[in-house]
Write a protein that binds this DNA or RNA. Structure first.
Lengths: 352, 352
DNA sequence: ACTTAGCACTCAGCCGATAAAAGTGCTAAT
DNA sequence: ATTAGCACTTTTATCGGCTGAGTGCTAAGT
């Protein structure tokens, strides 16, 4: 690594650590460099001319620019992984029965905790899932809960009240009809398909209009984003926000807007996408490290870590990569194991 | 209302509005009182001696104390309800199919939005609910989702993977057995009861240990609090926090701790409980207005509004009372209507 | 051709003093 | 009892001065 890069790395490292503009002398003091401060200054000058670092005022130390962070992330970053996170993730994976969702949730809690940043889980896009089963469970005199399960094990439900008592047989045949017609249907096609079925159920069961309404509403809810945030409060610890609440407000607002989050988290070609301080989208001082995660039998999801531009990229990226890889590997292994151990006869289970 | 009370009310009102200590002259200027400032000062002196108001420093205006707020809330408060919230709540209730949960959720969003405070919904204590039905839905080659429904329409689910393929008939009989044994069981008794059943299912189905584990885990999850927060970000707009992030951090922490929230929200004898700045629980500058809400066929729940001690009690209390009353009335009316219109014959629906 | 010592310069941050504003309490007169 | 008047207190804002951390530039050294 040439000297200029070396200095850039130190500037970024130090700024990430202290949140203070870093000057030439500080750098020497802290890292025992054997150039003089003047040399550093001239290098910094060059770095500034190239747009990697900036001054906050004419005679201040330097602060990385988005371009600087970018270069740091792409070229200067080192891996940084420690035993603690490995151990913690292992603990999660060692639990006997874990759905992938549970594992992802707990892993994100760990990620948030260990990076002091927000982590975001963006579930697979509902529209690609298919409904596999639907149940109507009576829960009282005149109310029932409809339960819908998709092929990724996602469950949506809706409780509704009906004016009259319903014959249990009617419910049963209604459920059967609905399952016959709807199971296997992609979420996105549920609404039109349901409209087609409407006349059929209206003959079949009393209170059909309420049932119909309830189902329609639930179908719409499917489409809404499956998005979870962990460690939202961690942002309060970031020094950038402790004076300027408005910045905090902005990022919090961003985090409360599912559409925006999806937008931001989703895009990106590769496995890992790193977005730093995009000036267009009002995310001037925000960085997002996001990874795709794919486990067998599930659609692809995303895990992202969101925080101020000044985040510890080495840690964040290494941790996130490690977590995603480990989770994927874990479920693949289990899948393989299961496949191998299973005879290829085909009884039951598949079509119900 | 005597003059002293009148002045106390104005002090509280004005402080709630401006978040600034209020002085004698200000009061006259703002509210066109026809006493002199000296009179007000001497009244304030008395109020301070009685502990209703405080000075922030020797020559500052006055700020209400917890005792002052308390007195204000109990004796000086006026009703304050406007058309907007009535209209909004009505819109929610006018939707055709609404479960009480959905209504409560949407109402709380409205409450949060209109008060700029956090609202908290504390679901009925799970331990009093009973399981009414359980389903196991195969969702792929080797995975299944177990779905549990309680008598309040609450749904919990868990997806799990099994090593081997399972015969669909086995699943069916297993589900039947479990339903026979478990439905009607209070949540709190599920775990021991399940342990008793364990030997029965182990003969019945392959992969029973995983199923058993999954169920046990889910039962534990039932017990965890059903607690939702709305408008958490609204606190960022409160001026008390814009300088002092630490206060914000404290209250946010409090809001992230389900146990604490339950503690705080739950207690209280009457319909409406108002807790203001309890110095013991590290909630020096927090007020909580909480109301019980009870709809037919559901256990009792709680809605609370949480914010800085300096909250607009007139608005908050009136709104909350209105919302709770309206919701309860709505569901009661519907219940009555249904009861009346229903013949007393007893076909189906109840026991399944 | 780099490096670096040295120097002049800049600017945020921290006093300290001063002045204004908003308040209070007290007293004496109404 | 009320209030006008006044002395007193405290916060807040402003201004100049000073300091410290920083820069850029230049000229000398390697």
């Amino acid at each position: 690594m040439n000297r200029r890069d070396q200095i850039l790395k130190l500037v970024v490292d130090h700024f990430i650590k202290t949140a203070q503009p870093v000057g030439s002398q500080t750098l020497i003091d802290e890292y025992h460099l054997d150039f003089s401060s003047a040399t550093i200054r001239s290098e910094m000058n060059a770095l500034e001319a190239d747009g990697f670092i900036e001054k906050t005022h004419t005679s201040s130390g330097r602060v990385p620019s988005s371009k600087g962070y970018r270069y740091y992330v792409d070229n200067l970053r080192e891996k940084s992984i420690d035993e603690e996170i490995k151990h913690r993730i292992q603990t999660v994976l060692d639990q006997k029965v874990q759905s992938s969702e549970a594992v992802i949730r707990e892993s994100c809690e760990i990620l948030s905790h260990m990076t002091n940043l927000v982590s975001v889980v963006l579930g697979p896009n509902a529209n690609e899932e298919k409904l596999v089963n639907l149940q109507i469970i009576p829960i009282g005199e005149r109310s029932a809960t409809a339960v819908f399960v998709t092929d990724t094990g996602y469950v949506e439900n809706k409780t509704f009240n009906i004016a009259e008592k319903i014959k249990i047989d009617d419910v049963q045949s209604c459920v059967k009809l609905l399952n016959d017609r709807l199971s296997g249907t992609p979420i996105s096609e549920l609404v039109p398909k349901m409209q087609a079925i409407k006349p059929l159920i209206s003959d079949l069961i009393v209170g059909h209009d309420i049932l119909y309404q309830a189902m329609l509403e639930t179908f719409l809810r499917f489409a809404s984003d499956r998005l979870s945030l962990y460690g939202r409060d961690k942002l309060l610890d970031q020094p950038e926000y402790s004076h300027d609440i408005n910045k905090l407000k902005k990022i919090m607002q961003m985090l409360s807007s599912p559409e925006l989050i999806r937008d931001i988290t989703e895009q990106g070609e590769g496995e890992l996408t790193i977005r730093i301080g995009e000036s267009d989208n009002d995310l001037e001082d925000v960085a997002i490290v996001s990874a795709k995660v794919k486990v067998p039998g599930q659609k692809e999801g995303n895990i992202a870590i969101v925080g101020p531009r000044r985040m510890d990229y080495e840690k964040v990226i290494s941790y996130l990569e490690y977590v995603v890889d480990t989770i994927e590997k874990h479920f693949e292994d289990r899948d393989d194991l299961v496949k191998k151990s299973t005879k290829e006869d085909d009884n039951g289970w598949k079509k119900n």
